[in-house]
């Protein structure tokens, strides 16, 4: 995957990205294994930014590793941990090192993470962050100063198609689209009706933006229940929980992979959207099995 992600988005009919979650600690050997395994099988590798407000190896650091190993990194930037100065500085650094794709998101609250007493920043929100990247792309910083050497980021964002109530969420998506994004990676979706409704809404505002459906394999009924209760913005329907509950003991992961592959096939065949973003957190080494079962390898 040496083609820039921006080009992939323009050219490819079905875009596939996967997530590489940074480790807690400085030992990146396993992450490097994952990068080597996945870099040529997907179009871009997303790196999360202190995901779920749990302190980890930085997104920027893993993106550099991806770049060094010949992959196409997608830098996730949240608004939780950095103010506008720090975000701009990080983006300048990223671009200077060949990291050209950025996903702008709000970030979870520190209350759900492992440093609950931290002062959360949220100097900007995700819509403002998208505007900020455009400002940098235009050769200026947020204060209007000229940059000595500009940037040219391919900008993406996230959305939650299964939010309830949906309307306020859609108004925010509309603002993000108007700010200008090339792609949207959705929160994990399990109901295609929701996804179709969402896609239709987006298409009415912006025909060109690529929508990648978020795929998070669920490997047990227990995990599904846990996610429903604890992961913000995720709603797993009962019929999937039942399907997982009926899987014989020890076949949970296989079942989860099967369901994920089935969903990807459906997204592709029914042309629900333009691709998928696979998040198999902690089991990155099994992402190729999903790709294979979905007929993407």
């Amino acid at each position: 995957m040496t083609t820039p992600f921006r080009e992939i988005l323009k050219r490819k009919d079905f875009v596939v990205t996967a997530e590489a979650a940074p480790v807690k600690g400085s030992s990146v050997s396993k992450t490097v294994e994952h990068i080597t395994l996945l870099k040529d099988k997907v179009d871009g590798l997303n790196v999360t930014d202190n995901q779920s407000s749990v302190m980890r190896y930085p997104s920027l650091g893993i993106c550099l590793l991806i770049k060094e190993h010949g992959g196409e990194p997608v830098l996730q930037v949240t608004c939780r941990d950095r103010n506008r100065l720090a975000i701009q500085a990080d983006l300048l650094f990223a671009y200077s090192r060949g990291i050209n794709n950025v996903v702008c998101l709000t970030g979870d609250s520190v209350d759900v993470g492992d440093h609950k007493e931290a002062k959360q920043v949220f100097d900007l929100d995700s819509v403002q962050l998208i505007h900020l990247v455009h400002t940098l792309n235009s050769g200026k910083d947020m204060a209007g100063n000229e940059l000595d050497g500009g940037v040219d980021f391919c900008i993406g964002t996230t959305a939650t198609p299964s939010a309830d109530p949906l309307e306020p969420q859609l108004i925010k998506v509309e603002k993000k689209l108007k700010a200008g994004v090339s792609f949207i990676q959705t929160q994990a979706v399990y109901e295609f009706d929701e996804l179709k409704r969402f896609t239709e809404f987006v298409r009415n505002i912006d025909e060109k933006v690529k929508i990648l459906a978020g795929i998070v394999p669920v490997i047990s009924a227990k995990m599904a229940a846990y996610m429903n209760d604890n992961v913000p913005g995720i709603f797993i329907p009962q019929h999937l929980i039942d399907e997982l509950a009926q899987a014989p003991k020890g076949t949970g992961i296989a079942k989860g992979i099967e369901i994920a592959a089935r969903m990807i096939r459906q997204v592709k065949e029914e042309e629900v959207c333009d691709g998928v973003h696979i998040m198999f957190i902690g089991r990155e080494e099994r992402v190729p099995e999903i790709l294979e079962a979905a007929g993407l390898l």
Binding site: L105, D108, D125, S126, V127, Q128, D164, P168, Q169, I171
Partner: peptide, 8 residues
């Protein structure tokens, strides 16, 4: 300032 987060 611009709408709900994805965690509602």
């Amino acid at each position: 300032l611009n709408g709900p987060c994805g965690g509602t």
